[in-house]
């Protein structure tokens, strides 16, 4: 099934991967693709490592992406990029947010936050590093970091034919449409 594309979003519970998955899958559906998506709920969401998997093409069977199969890995948090790197196709692309959220063992001083993650990943695959946190903050709403990353994803997957601004406007919370569209445009640059 070579024509099926795999997008893997990873991050930390609470970072808004589910919203991006929703925007992404809605847009792909409107564009006429068969779409399947898989997300994580429940216990793992409480600050744990989360993934959101989107697959699209003419006909999709499995809702999950296997190791080595993602065409693009979008990591909302730097360390999570490394954790999920083996899910990326060696010929795929990585979009990594230069943004650290230390996990519990790091906060307690049991582990150190690993250094040099970006250069490890850059040495292995085609990588785009983005400071989505800073970009969102400059735009005036740190919480739109996820939509900045979504812009980078659309660029990375060359999905610019779809009218994403319309999709975003129809899905995000009322009153936040403009800032989210701005965040999307910033990520697309």
């Amino acid at each position: 099934m070579a024509e099926v594309k795999n997008i893997l979003l990873v991050g930390v519970g609470g970072q808004g991967t589910i919203l991006v998955g929703k925007i992404l899958s809605s847009g792909l559906m409107r564009a006429g693709y068969d779409v399947k998506m898989s997300e994580v709920h429940g216990m793992a969401q409480r600050g744990g490592s989360v993934s959101n998997q989107v697959r699209y093409g003419t006909k999709v069977y499995s809702p999950i992406i296997d190791k080595g199969q993602a065409d693009i890995l979008v990591a909302f948090e730097t360390m999570e990029a490394l954790r999920w790197l083996d899910y990326l196709n060696p010929n795929g692309k990585a979009v990594v947010n230069d943004y650290r959220i230390p996990s519990a063992p790091i906060l307690m001083g049991k582990n150190d936050y690993p250094e040099g993650i970006l250069s490890i990943i850059q040495g292995k695959v085609d990588t785009t590093v983005i400071k989505a946190g800073e970009i969102a903050k400059k735009l005036g709403n740190s919480r739109t970091m996820n939509i900045v990353l979504f812009g980078a994803l659309v660029k990375g997957m060359n999905l610019t034919d779809i009218n994403w601004e319309q999709v975003i406007t129809s899905i995000v919370k009322a009153g936040t449409e403009d800032i989210n569209v701005e965040a999307f445009r910033a990520g697309l640059k």
Partner: peptide
């Protein structure tokens, strides 16, 4: 067996769920 990216993943700190 499908190819994956080889790298050392042994020292990535875990990220267990926590009380908010």
């Amino acid at each position: 067996i499908r190819p994956t990216i080889e790298y050392d993943s042994t020292n990535i700190p875990t990220r267990p769920p926590t009380l908010c």
